[in-house]
Computed example of a mutant assay.
Amino acid sequence: MDAAVSGQIYANLGYDFMAITDHNLVHDSNQWRSWQEQVGLVIIPGEENGSTDHILEIGVSAVTPTSSESYVARAKTLRDAGGFIIGCHPQEYPDRGEKNVSDAAEILHGFELFNGLREGRGFDEMANVDLWDEILTQGHKVWGVATDDFHCAHITPGHGWVCVQMPEDVPEKVPWKTIVQQLKKGAFFASTYSSFEEIILEDGILKVTTKQSREIQIIADGGQIVFQVEGTNLEWRVESNLTYFRIEALSGVKRAWSQPFFSTIHT
């Protein structure tokens, strides 16, 4: 499916941007401009790197050559090239996927907590959330990402997505480079349904407002639930002895994940 067609599908669903990540291919600037003129959202260039053990690099104008077969070395090469670097669908590689992400935790910006295509194929995507908590408990700063991995006929759109916070001075027509910069900072949440309307941390008090959630949980060291409330509003005094905490909004089996807060930020 041409990106002009898939882009309009996502625009009609209310998306503001999408990334095109063909395998080991970044389309030339003329093609990007053509797509951008045809669709009602921002298109971000990128690629899915590697013949296996895939790594996304988002926000690049050319494929970054990676000579090493080492996952960690490839991740470092890709990050040094300047893109937003995401470890892909670790559950697809049961003998090494989680180890890949753990070993590269100091290098990757993030990894896929949820991949819609893989969930449709029966993979245990929630195992990625357990892996995330293990990595965060070790003190690594790694962002959680949700994607569709839209492959035309193989999946319907709208299963996994991210919502990015924009700077106050951003122009009305948001440049894709600004979106990538915010992704690198972790200024976004990932979701399969619910959304965070507001997250405020001030004087040690966390206030959260969500949309379409039945429950809000605070998850901390070791993946433990340290606080939870029913509904769409939460207020909680942050516990200073935690390595990290993150917020999870639940609606049945659907989830929204904030990015983690670390002790150096909230104490």
Score class of each variant (00 low, 15 high):
44 I>S: 03
48 E>I: 04
79 R>F: 13
43 I>P: 00
56 L>K: 08
39 V>L: 00
87 G>F: 07
48 E>G: 06
87 G>N: 07
79 R>T: 11
84 F>G: 13
19 A>S: 11
73 A>V: 04
55 I>D: 08
52 T>N: 08
14 G>H: 13
97 G>S: 04
53 D>T: 07
54 H>S: 04
44 I>V: 14
31 Q>H: 06
84 F>Y: 15
19 A>D: 05
75 A>W: 06
38 Q>D: 01
59 G>K: 15
28 D>Q: 15
36 Q>Y: 01
18 M>G: 01
62 A>S: 13
93 Y>D: 05
35 W>C: 01
29 S>Q: 15
20 I>D: 02
92 E>F: 07
62 A>G: 08
56 L>C: 09
22 D>M: 07
51 S>F: 14
86 I>R: 09
27 H>K: 13
76 K>Y: 04
75 A>H: 07
49 N>S: 12
13 L>K: 12
37 E>S: 03
54 H>A: 03
81 A>N: 15
84 F>I: 15
24 N>C: 13
18 M>W: 02
70 S>L: 01
64 T>M: 06
87 G>W: 11
88 C>N: 09
47 E>N: 12
40 G>Q: 02
14 G>T: 09
27 H>L: 05
46 G>A: 14
34 S>I: 04
71 Y>W: 03
13 L>R: 06
68 S>P: 01
20 I>S: 03
93 Y>G: 03
8 Q>Y: 01
39 V>E: 00
79 R>M: 13
80 D>Q: 15
87 G>M: 06
48 E>A: 05
29 S>D: 14
21 T>L: 02
70 S>V: 04
22 D>Q: 07
92 E>W: 03
94 P>S: 11
21 T>A: 02
72 V>N: 01
94 P>M: 10
49 N>W: 10
79 R>K: 15
43 I>Q: 01
68 S>N: 03
6 S>Q: 01
72 V>H: 01
61 S>F: 12
79 R>Y: 13
83 G>M: 15
86 I>Y: 04
